[in-house]
Simulated assay, not measured.
Amino acid sequence: MFEAALAALHQILTPPFRSVLYKSLGLTLLLLALAWAGLDKLALSLVAVDHPLLHSILTFATGAGLVIFLAFLIGPVSILVTGFFIDDLAAHVEQEIYPMGRIGRPVPASAAIGMTLRFALVSAAVNFVALLLLLVPGINAVAFFLANAYLFGREYFAFAATRFRSAAEADDMRQHYMPRIFLAGLLIAGFVATPGLNLLTPMFATAFMVRIHKKLSPELSEP
């Protein structure tokens, strides 16, 4: 498992992954900038304050609140944006690790969109709960890691498996190997929990889980 993680780390530095990183970062920052402009204008338009001091305080409070809110959204938005490139990333990994002719098939467009939205919603939900748990000392970090390990391990493994199997077969396989997939998810949770690295989560998780799926599918290694 650690060998697969190290290989995935190395691969996200290669040109195909860097290209996706640049595109996803650019689109993520653009979306967040548009959200900032829109939310800032909306917030200030809802409360009319004529007093200069109160207006300054409101402007500062609004800006600070938006910074926190958008920082919370960086992870989910980057996952949403990168999700549109995830099939290409998986195919690139498979070309490197599978025998000739054993590359998976692209996930159907409707299913891919559903997975992408689910990835982003899972990320937003987990991070929102983790934000609330900051008020509960002693369990916040543990709850954050366990929730991320389960959810992200499950979602990214399901994606990797669905490129070779039906959704039902992928789900059966995920349930059969749940302990191993959960342990793999803990490594993804480390990315999610690290500022800066969390932007690389989709790329690392894809490269990592494609390899985990291969290790759990010896029949796919046969020529």
Rank of each mutant, 00 (worst) to 15 (best):
P223V: 14
A120Q: 10
F159N: 06
R165I: 08
S24L: 03
A124Q: 06
A90D: 02
F191I: 00
S123I: 06
V49R: 00
F208K: 00
K214W: 07
S45A: 13
S166G: 15
I57A: 10
P179K: 09
M100C: 08
S45P: 04
K41H: 10
V192A: 14
L151G: 11
W36H: 03
S78Y: 03
P16L: 03
I12E: 02
A64K: 10
A207M: 01
A207H: 01
G26V: 09
L133Q: 05
T116R: 02
V93G: 04
F204G: 06
A120R: 06
V20A: 06
L220G: 04
A124G: 14
V49L: 09
G101N: 02
S110Q: 13
V192G: 07
L197P: 02
H55Q: 11
H10I: 12
L46M: 10
T82N: 05
Q11T: 11
K214N: 09
L135V: 05
V122P: 03
A147M: 15
P108C: 11
M115D: 11
E222C: 14
K23W: 09
P179W: 01
F17S: 01
D87H: 10
P52Q: 05
P202Y: 00
I113A: 14
K41Y: 12
L220I: 10
D50G: 14
M178R: 09
S24F: 00
D88T: 14
M203K: 03
D50C: 06
G38Q: 00
L132N: 11
A147E: 08
R174A: 12
Q95F: 04
A8I: 01
I68M: 05
S110Y: 15
L135G: 05
V20N: 06
E219Q: 13
I188D: 02
H176G: 08
V192R: 11
F2T: 11
G65I: 02
I79W: 03
H92P: 12
F208G: 02
P76D: 00
I139K: 03
F119G: 13
L34W: 05
I12Y: 02
R211I: 11
R118Q: 12
G26P: 07
A91L: 12
L183E: 09
Y150K: 08
L58Y: 12
S56R: 12
F157H: 00
I74V: 15
S221Q: 15
S221W: 05
L117A: 14
G114K: 15
D40A: 07
G196M: 03
A141C: 10
G153M: 12
F152A: 08
H55T: 04
R163V: 03
V126G: 03
Q11M: 08
D87F: 07
